[in-house]
Design a protein around this nucleic acid. Structure first.
Lengths: 152, 152
DNA sequence: TCTATATCCGATATTGATATTAGAATATAG
DNA sequence: CTATATTCTAATATCAATATCGGATATAGA
């Protein structure tokens, strides 16, 4: 059980780095992937999902790369997460019961709806700008490192 | 992205049914699996994880099956969920960064910690008894049905 | 125009989680 | 004792996530 998939974790972290460059400045996927300990082509593939929703743009060739397509203050975590993973999490029943809804609720429907709503609000109200400006964290110095999930 | 895996959803639902029988009364896995639209052997396999933690006991042979090993008021959702899925969710960093902690936090560390803590509290404070007694829901009439997750 | 560097896109390999099946082991009723 | 209902266990199948690769395409600069 994990909230974000590995690919989404890569994507979010890369975008935080990218937003430190400001809107419109291109950085190559390989530069962004370096501290992630991930193949740059994989990150690249993940980032592709953000093009259509207008979060990033790309430029091929020399000095090309990925750039923010709008101001970091207008990009929310919710935008990013759902662009990569979809919004299934925010739609489906806690128990996976198909008839579950306000009329025929499962025993978790109301409580889980509240908890999940809180998470949704949080994701929607947190912008990339805030994350990039958060100087109290390790992100400022690229101090972070990723490790593979433990095997069985 | 989904909170509980399908197997855990089956397990929780089955235990709610089971607890309506009271402590110590055995019900076969196939009876429990019927409304779940799942192979009974699969449910059986999932339920096995609950034996060692002392949540259920089993009896083989005629009239055998699975029974609650203690009172439903002493079994929490947290017990059940972590018995099946482990507690990774409650331990790991939102971004999957290995050095993340109170000293070197990632930008999500504090906020996510709160949200996740709320979920943990909720799971720990909700008992099987409460769920089984929740008469305002579809569970009372076995009105629920499961469907497979949508394919790609 | 040519070359080096990048993304893009689709195909495919790999892995781990999830789900299913089959058969052995075991307990109980009669 | 025997037949049968049931769990138990291990092997296997399926699927989705993760990762890799190669060719096509675009771009900048020499």
């Amino acid at each position: 059980m994990q909230f974000l998939s590995l690919g989404t974790q890569y994507t979010l972290t890369a975008l935080i780095s990218l937003s430190k460059q400001g809107t419109g400045v291109a950085v190559s996927a390989s530069k962004l992937a370096e501290p992630l300990n991930s193949p740059s082509t994989y990150l690249s593939q993940m980032l592709t999902h953000l093009i259509e929703p207008g979060i990033i743009g790309t430029r091929r060739g020399i000095n090309g790369g990925v750039y923010l397509a709008k101001d970091a203050s207008e990009i929310t975590m919710f935008d990013i997460v759902t662009a990569v993973e979809g919004d299934e999490f925010f739609q489906t029943c806690f128990l996976g019961i198909s008839g579950c809804g306000d009329i025929e609720p499962c025993p978790f429907h109301e409580e889980w709806g509240k908890k999940r709503g809180k998470i949704e609000e949080w994701l929607k109200s947190t912008t990339l700008e805030e994350l990039a400006n958060d100087t109290s964290t390790m992100m400022t110095d690229g101090l972070f490192r990723f490790e593979r999930r433990a095997k069985n």
